[in-house]
Deep mutational scan, measured.
Amino acid sequence: KKYKIKVYVKDKKTKKWKKIKEIEVDTKEEALEAIKKLPPNYEVKIVP
């Protein structure tokens, strides 16, 4: 079972969220580790 991490950042001009990358991992633990490495201003969604 794979997890997709969708990473969004808020556009300063439009104030809208835009997706900047998608990370695919195998476990939820890996997903949480990957999220920890991202800057705090990123919004993250984990999709099972």
Rank of each mutant, 00 (worst) to 15 (best):
K1S: 15
K1N: 14
K1A: 12
K1R: 14
Y3L: 06
Y3E: 00
K4R: 12
I5N: 00
I5F: 08
K6D: 09
K6Q: 11
K6V: 14
Y8W: 04
Y8H: 01
Y8R: 00
Y8F: 06
Y8I: 01
V9T: 10
V9N: 05
V9W: 07
V9Y: 08
V9F: 06
K10W: 06
K10L: 08
D11S: 09
D11I: 05
K12W: 08
K12I: 11
K12G: 11
K13V: 14
K13C: 09
K13G: 11
T14C: 03
T14K: 11
T14E: 04
K15T: 05
K15L: 08
K16F: 05
K16R: 12
K16P: 00
K16W: 04
K16T: 06
W17P: 02
W17M: 04
K18N: 06
K18D: 02
K18R: 12
K18Q: 09
K19R: 05
K19Q: 07
I20L: 13
I20S: 02
I20E: 03
K21I: 10
K21P: 01
K21T: 14
E22Y: 03
E22T: 15
E22W: 03
E22L: 04
E22D: 07
I23W: 15
I23H: 04
E24Y: 13
E24S: 10
E24H: 15
E24M: 13
V25R: 03
V25F: 14
D26A: 11
D26L: 09
T27H: 03
T27D: 05
T27P: 00
T27Y: 03
K28I: 09
K28N: 09
E29A: 14
E29T: 07
E29W: 12
E29R: 07
E30H: 06
A31L: 11
A31D: 00
A31N: 00
L32I: 15
E33Q: 13
A34V: 14
A34P: 00
A34T: 13
A34H: 11
A34K: 09
A34I: 15
A34S: 06
K36A: 04
K36Y: 05
L38N: 01
L38E: 02
L38F: 14
L38Y: 13
L38G: 01
P39W: 04
P39Y: 06
P40L: 07
P40F: 06
N41M: 10
N41E: 15
N41S: 13
Y42N: 06
Y42P: 01
Y42H: 11
Y42F: 12
E43G: 15
E43D: 07
E43W: 14
E43A: 15
E43Y: 15
E43L: 10
V44Y: 13
V44P: 03
V44G: 11
K45T: 08
K45Y: 07
I46K: 01
I46G: 01
I46L: 09
I46F: 09
I46Q: 01
V47N: 05
